[in-house]
Amino acid sequence: MEMLCTLRSVTEAQRDALLQAPKRLDDFLDDEEDFGDPKGGAFLELDIGEAWHGLQYLLTGTPWEGSAPLDFLVRGGVDVGDIPSDEGTARVFSPEQVKVLASALREVSENTLRRRYDAVEMQAQDIYPGTWEEPPDDSDPLEEMVSYFDELQKFMAQMGKRGDALLVHIG
């Protein structure tokens, strides 16, 4: 089973609703038309697929820990709660936390990510998806991580400017 990561903007009202009714997460994730900004703006979404664990490692130097706020892909925020097991995990971050995270991501350089990339070590650390030494096709995992990181920086900067809360869903 693939574990894919989606980052999505949420309003504070949506954040509160998800915390009160975690079993509605699937409905929330599937409803792309009715969950826009009440002021007329559209929600933002970034799908980083299987890259979430590699990015966590490159941002923090650890598979499951690291320092806040850069450990946000696997830790932090508020756990949405008891969601059905096949839905994965979901955590939400406040607009203030999003602004701090956007600022922290701006401070991370591409060179830092490149220095931390070590396919042998990532394989040994069991970083998902576990194909670091032998990628499944002609892709370059490092370049893929750098590309996702660039998108992540832009996404979080835009969310910070808008004052959005954040939902991180891995499932």
Rank of each mutant, 00 (worst) to 15 (best):
A165F: 02
V74G: 09
A21I: 08
G160W: 10
D30A: 15
P141W: 03
P95H: 07
E45I: 07
K23W: 14
S103I: 02
D137Q: 04
L18C: 04
Q125F: 05
D82E: 13
A68N: 07
G49P: 00
R8Y: 05
V146F: 05
E33Y: 14
L18W: 02
E134L: 11
S109F: 00
L105H: 05
E107N: 09
L58R: 08
P135K: 04
S103H: 13
D79A: 14
G61T: 06
G171C: 11
I48Q: 00
Q14A: 05
A90I: 08
D82K: 12
P136T: 08
F149E: 03
W132T: 01
P63E: 06
Y128M: 07
D71K: 10
V74E: 14
E151L: 13
G171P: 11
M122H: 02
L25H: 08
S9N: 02
Y148P: 02
G41P: 06
D34T: 12
E151N: 15
D126P: 08
D150S: 15
M159K: 09
Q97M: 06
P129F: 04
G163I: 03
Y117S: 01
M1S: 12
R115Y: 09
V168R: 02
A21F: 11
I48H: 00
A124R: 15
D79G: 08
E107Y: 00
G171M: 04
A124G: 08
T89V: 12
E96V: 13
S94F: 04
H53A: 15
A21Y: 09
E144Y: 10
A157C: 11
T6V: 14
D82I: 08
G54W: 00
D37C: 10
